[in-house]
Amino acid sequence: MKNTSLLGKMISHREWLLGAIIVLMLMGVGYIAPFFVTPGNLAEAFDDTSILIMLACAQMLVILTRCIDLSVASNIALTGMCVALFNVAYPDTPALVTLILSIGIGIVLGAFNGILVWLVGIPSIVVTLGTMSVYRGFVFLISGGEWVNAHEMTPQFLALPRATFLDLTVLSWIAIAVTLALFVFTRFTKTGLSIFAVGGNPKAAVYSGINVGKYQFITFCISGAVAGMCGYLWVSRYAVAYVEVAVAFELQVVAACVIGGISIAGGIGTIWGAALGAIFLGLIKNALPVIGISPFWQLAISGLVIVLAVIINSRSEKCGGRRILREAHQ
């Protein structure tokens, strides 16, 4: 009954399959362009992927509850602009305070999505499609369409994500910490378990005394908090804040989740899957130019991989189906 072949196991344990593919890709790229797999370059590629990893892990929680948060990229732009303007107005603010401020703004934006989903009962795709535009519009309103450039930002503001510790940037360390924290959250807290329950079987969740809407709200708050924090990290890493920051980035975030084996139907997924999905996309983005493949191929390859991932997802869901007949040897 159980699929014991190596391939079957790989398919049912998406993390291993993805991990193996990533290692194979690294070996392949390393063969053509050895400098790519030097520790320094890998650290750089990881730094470049950090924001995507964090957003994918947070998005996964939302998707687990059968929702989706399309407003994360606009949240990044709005929060990023807010903290950049704040930095211009109050240059003496320590970077850590700015970081906390960005998380706070992000939570508010996420909670707004969550309230519309929970208490007003609007489908999340509609809510976040709306707030995606609303938040992006606010960026224009508060900035007047102007850019905040590097020379207007204080050195402290710019330094935080770039500072290095043990050969990795602080941005990379934050991504690792967020991933670990969300792993503990999903595996070892009542809220985390309830999130799986809500998406796995909402009806059974109600019978178990779990308030479906409340947990959806919580995941939107988490997604908002992470997006807000990434807003500051993005603006300071690229040293510029403007209206079009991170445009369409939400699609990459959702793609990372799908590649990582998170079921769009809810209830199935792991933090490792989401993180590896993001790393996979980051690897494609960073490795393909190195081996001389056009950026347009990157888009096509990412797209193909997403379709492939969805096919594998639906296969593995079929494998685990209900069986009525007893096995012959019983």
Partner: peptide, 8 residues
Amino acid sequence: EAVMFDEL
């Protein structure tokens, strides 16, 4: 009715 969670 089966009010359980198949994936858990």
